[in-house]
Design a protein around this nucleic acid. Sequence first.
RNA 1: GCCGCGGUGGCGGAAUUGGUAGACGCGCGAGACUUAAAAUCUCGUGGUAGCAAUGUCAUGUGGGUUCGAUUCCCACCCGCGGCACCA
Length: 858
Amino acid sequence: MYDQNKVEEKWQQIWDKNQLFQQTENGSTVGDGKGGAGDGTGGTVDGVGANDSENIYLLFAFAYPSGSGLHVGHVESKTALDILARYYRMKGKNVFFPVGWDAFGLPAENYAIKTGVHPSITTVNAINTFRKQIKRIGISYDWANEIATSHPEYYRWTQWLFLQLYNKGLAYQKDGKVNWCPSCQTVLANEQVVEGLCERCDTQVEQKDMRQWYYQITKYQDELIGGLDDVDWPAATKAQQLNWIGKSEGINITFKVVDSDVTIDVFTTAPTNWGASFMVLAPEYPGLEKLVTKENKKEVAAYVDATNKKSELNRSISKEKTGVFTGSYVKNHVTGENMPVWISDFVLAGVGTGAVQGCPGHDMRDFEFAKKFRIKIPRVVVGPDGNDSPIDSPEKVIDKSMPGTMINSEFINGLSYKEGLKKTMDYFEEKGWGKRVTSYRLRDWLISRQRYWGTPIPVLYDPDGNPHAIKESHLPWELPTDVDFKPTGESPLKSSQEFAQRTRKYVVEVHSDLIKEKGWDASGEGWRPEFDTMDTFVDSSWYYLRYVDSRNTDVFARTKQIEKWLPVDLYMIGPEHIVLHLLYSRFFTKFLRDEGYFKFSEPFTKMRHQGMILGPDNKKMSKSKGNVISPDDIITKFGADTLRVYEMFMGPLESDKPWDIRAVIGIYKFLQKIHKLTAELELEEVSGEAKVKLQRKLHQAIKKVSDDIPKLKFNTAIAFMMEFVNLWQDVMIKENKTLSIEDKIAFIGVLAPFAPFLADELYETISKKVSSEASYGGVHQTKWPEFSQELAKDDLITIPVQINGKVRAQLEVIADKVEDEKAILDMAEGLESIKKYIDGQEIKKKIYIKGKILSLVI
RNA sequence: GCCGCGGUGGCGGAAUUGGUAGACGCGCGAGACUUAAAAUCUCGUGGUAGCAAUGUCAUGUGGGUUCGAUUCCCACCCGCGGCACCA
């Protein structure tokens, strides 16, 4: 028995003292205690002369330091990356494995509103807790480059980034309808509205007219699609990003209103125009009043009014189609018929042009609408069944996702559905009736937030209300501290005296010429700062760049540092960040590339998601369900190594899996067994047959673990280590002999990334036996064990023999014999258990797959 | 509705360029040690028939391809995640 808690705390202190995991001037990991700095001034990650292909950047999702501390899910993903980091270091690579805090955000501010404790205090406390817990589970982070988004030396560069975007016209102000959360008292980005509710608090989101700041992410929409081909990400993640960007190619067709100069544009991806029999506009359609005839005015007004009262969510769940006729008609270009123009709430103002042409035979929504209001339903497509009867039921509607052939459409008759649509578009463009366009679902990113605890938007407004960006030389434009946190719908920054004073001082210093010219008050009176702060996703979508030069005061990061480490080799992040964070990060990367700061276009070469650890009841852990497992409890009972190895053993990293309270004990026993076997120093070394068997298993284990770690298949790596340990124990019990010192050290090396504390303890125990030197040069500084093909080779291979597809016998073959097909066949046919089945019959077919299987057919 | 992922013992899971289904761990059963318990160790453990050797069924369901299918193809059922009156 060993006291894991005492041992683990001892090693944690030794690692800390020796600054093991910092990247220093020479690009190597420090082992002599001279590099890095633990005093908060930080080291740098300069890597002059280092071989670039040997540099590996491992990144864990930026964490929000919540008050509740580390949970078991954090432990899983951090441990997974830590295993990789430790493995690659032992393989002689330069590993950059930084840590930091996404420290701005609502929870700390909401806590301040409730208790009056300033968010900066709450945040520092939470970070301290996290840091302590992370060190306790032995994550080998590079603490010298720790960053926090709420630190002025970090958000200085968040503001700098704003200025660059502003200078290029990619940060701009716009009036318009925005998503407003009445509970959080702030606007939200489209990405933060989930099914009409606020992502954070589930409050129904309202629409409000406000002037806000936006980042023009849509400039990069096509590149954001194309870039996905160049990265190794899960297919589901790519699909979701594509879905979100929502590119669709179609045509804008201009219709002329009959007896009027007014025109209406519709967007469609499927112009079955010989089948178009009506038009529908969104109730919010601009210029609607010009189309409504006197007789229809009252009805239309009532419908528009009713729609305005419905939220977008309610609009989308109402099943039955509704609508009213405007009284106007448009002329169908190809049929010459007049099409009635209706309004209906199923057409959304924000999608396409806010107007659609109704082709009821070939679109389900149009069909429902036409059916209800008794509008003509022409058929212009027949399906593969050739049925060309009138379309009078939903089953007969042939939409663009189905196969079909064009009919009743003049010169495109007989073409395939797809070809027909293409030809129609060509024809409409030729005639000047329409123009091909690409439409996107993606909108520009609204970054203004009416909250306190965030990065101030570095802008001032002059007495005329025109914005002026803060000069780069005056950054950071600091967040004031003397504010009233109570949310009022306007930013709390408005209540700061210091902020107002600072603004006047700045204005007098920087804008004196303008003030003189305009004749404004010379004291800076009449100017105001921007009171809104930035969405915290702005902070957290460029942090991976800052890490590599975290203490630089001249630039957000030097190009040589960025190009040395980036793009990130492996990004481990929760599946919840697929849309927001990743899209924004990719946008910033592409922008800064265009600005010339580096050459790559995608920040994260390879990405994987960790699954969720569920409660023992197979449900998502939550305080209200009482199924939360605390990592601290597990550590107290079993130690951090057990916690780490258990979480890695539970199953594949990417899948969700329930916590099994009892299974933890199995890992605990496994580690205790290793300690017992290794720390046994008096026994004689095993020899002969047993030695061969044991060494074979050991080298197979080295191979298996070396193969599995880069593939993130930690569960099977651990399973094989268990097999080895079981055999080792078996030999020790039966022979009363054990492994050689060298082989023990090799095994400890393989174990080290998984159970770093135990491995270092055992390494020390053995080292003391061999030499009396006391200085630390632990297992984590050693080279990864060499695997020997020779020693790992099996001498006997078992080949199953099948007759008519069923296994009927096993053939034990000496390893060098597996190539000899004839010998194998003879041996098999000589077996009693096989003769029995053949029983004089002719063997029709003999299939031998070398070393795998022999299959006989009779 | 569309897109994506998944379905294997009592439980977590292993095995896929098609080659012995159930590695490893948990749980369970029996035994050793012990005055006893814990710890530790040994053996067994998919269903079914059998004392056993062995046979047979079995990877969500139903078909197919193949000497051989958890793996490939077709049709379906169920669960999870995302998007959604997107024109």
